[in-house]
Design a protein around this nucleic acid. Sequence first.
DNA 1: CGGGATCCCGTAGGATACTG
DNA 2: CAGTATCCTACGGGATCCCG
Lengths: 131, 131
Amino acid sequence: MQLSTPPGLQAIPSTCRGREVLDRVGDKWSLQVIAVLGERTLRFGQLRREIDGISQRMLTVTLRNLERDGVLTRKMYPVMPPRVDYALTPLGKTLLEAAGAFMTWAEAHVEQIDEARSAYDAKAESQAEQA
Amino acid sequence: MQLSTPPGLQAIPSTCRGREVLDRVGDKWSLQVIAVLGERTLRFGQLRREIDGISQRMLTVTLRNLERDGVLTRKMYPVMPPRVDYALTPLGKTLLEAAGAFMTWAEAHVEQIDEARSAYDAKAESQAEQA
DNA sequence: CGGGATCCCGTAGGATACTG
DNA sequence: CAGTATCCTACGGGATCCCG
């Protein structure tokens, strides 16, 4: 499946190793973690409080995966009580920018999507009552 | 959680209605459907054949969702055998471009991520055998 | 051909409890 | 504080069969 990019349209490279990346970063929490770490280095508990609704389990899992992918670093201080700092790597920062551009698109069009959704649902409903 | 965009880093707008969009388009098949439709209008069966591994069920639900969101149009011809054409809307084309930029980033860095992963796993393994 | 209806399963991810 | 360990459920998504 080779894409012959039509004029004016950027193709999604469909060798699609890119999907693997999306599988990793497209989950429920990764982008939000990356977003808040884009601001500054944070500790575990700070992340937990900044990211609304995340469980400590999912925060741990998400952080481990992103660390494994080289997106962020984990720095542990052997003190009591324990302290761990998380920060984006250079790779993570480029990811933030790339994803940010997409999320900006999403923000810009979410309203338009809502309208399309309402219109679709209204039409579907009016057709349902004909039965 | 308001983001004060640090210098040089594009923030992910964390009002994060954008997550809803990602929830929709970040699933297993949506981007691939959008990608192949970026080339040209296609019929159901053509889509099915172009997108490797998709089941007809998932193709149907994916198409319905994207139609509902105003990303693509569904045109039915009342003939026998049935014929249905799918095409991107203008909204869908802007989505393709935004997502394409992100996927391009993913393609560009997937190798770097693989390396990070290998390094991480190797280190984790060497630490495991110390126990 | 282009689906809808069912059945079924794996897994992402939430809640809770315990630990160094 | 920053996790790890279990348990449990909802749901994404595959396989299969049927229908206009």
